[in-house]
Amino acid sequence: MTLRPFHLAFPVRDLAEARAFYGGVLGCAEGRSSDEWIDFDFMGHQIVAHLAPTAHNGDAAVNHVDGHGVPVPHFGVVLTLEDFGALAERMRAAGTHFEIEPYTRFAGEPGEQRTMFFRDPSGNAIEMKAFASLDALFAT
Results as ranks from 00 to 15, higher is better:
residue 134 L to Q: 15
residue 54 T to V: 14
residue 111 G to R: 03
residue 89 E to W: 04
residue 85 G to M: 12
residue 99 E to S: 11
residue 58 G to T: 13
residue 50 H to T: 09
residue 66 D to P: 01
residue 123 G to C: 00
residue 120 D to E: 07
residue 80 T to K: 14
residue 101 E to Y: 10
residue 25 V to E: 01
residue 8 L to E: 01
residue 113 Q to S: 00
residue 54 T to I: 13
residue 51 L to G: 00
residue 23 G to N: 05
residue 107 A to L: 01
residue 62 V to K: 11
residue 40 F to W: 02
residue 1 M to T: 09
residue 21 F to L: 06
residue 78 V to I: 13
residue 8 L to A: 02
residue 11 P to V: 10
residue 81 L to N: 12
residue 100 I to C: 09
residue 135 D to H: 11
residue 60 A to N: 13
residue 92 R to G: 12
residue 91 M to N: 04
residue 131 F to C: 02
residue 78 V to H: 10
residue 49 A to S: 08
residue 8 L to M: 02
residue 24 G to F: 06
residue 14 D to F: 12
residue 33 S to V: 12
residue 125 A to M: 03
residue 28 C to P: 03
residue 12 V to W: 00
residue 100 I to G: 06
residue 123 G to R: 02
residue 71 P to I: 13
residue 4 R to T: 14
residue 112 E to I: 05
residue 12 V to A: 00
residue 22 Y to E: 02
residue 78 V to N: 12
residue 88 A to H: 04
residue 113 Q to V: 00
residue 134 L to S: 13
residue 9 A to G: 05
residue 36 E to V: 05
residue 3 L to D: 13
residue 27 G to L: 14
residue 17 E to C: 09
residue 116 M to S: 09
residue 55 A to Q: 03
residue 43 M to N: 03
residue 83 D to A: 12
residue 60 A to W: 13
residue 38 I to F: 04
residue 12 V to T: 00
residue 5 P to H: 08
residue 61 A to Y: 00
residue 76 G to W: 02
residue 134 L to Y: 14
residue 55 A to E: 05
residue 64 H to F: 15
residue 140 T to M: 15
residue 54 T to M: 13
residue 41 D to N: 13
residue 73 P to S: 03
residue 29 A to Y: 10
residue 15 L to S: 08
residue 71 P to D: 14
residue 132 A to I: 06
residue 128 M to E: 02
residue 113 Q to P: 00
residue 4 R to W: 11
residue 94 A to T: 08
residue 133 S to W: 10
residue 103 Y to F: 08
residue 104 T to E: 15
residue 126 I to G: 01
residue 100 I to W: 06
residue 34 S to G: 07
residue 71 P to W: 13
residue 47 I to P: 01
residue 65 V to M: 09
residue 28 C to F: 04
residue 69 G to M: 06
residue 21 F to P: 04
residue 19 R to Q: 11
residue 82 E to D: 13
residue 34 S to Q: 02
residue 13 R to V: 01
residue 91 M to T: 04
residue 91 M to R: 07
residue 26 L to K: 07
residue 77 V to A: 12
residue 59 D to E: 15
residue 21 F to S: 04
residue 41 D to K: 09
residue 88 A to F: 03
residue 70 V to R: 03
residue 133 S to M: 12
residue 96 T to D: 02
residue 77 V to K: 08
residue 116 M to E: 07
residue 76 G to F: 01
residue 133 S to D: 14
residue 17 E to H: 12
residue 105 R to S: 15
residue 44 G to A: 05
residue 90 R to K: 05
residue 29 A to S: 13
residue 61 A to E: 02
residue 3 L to S: 11
residue 47 I to K: 02
residue 67 G to Q: 12
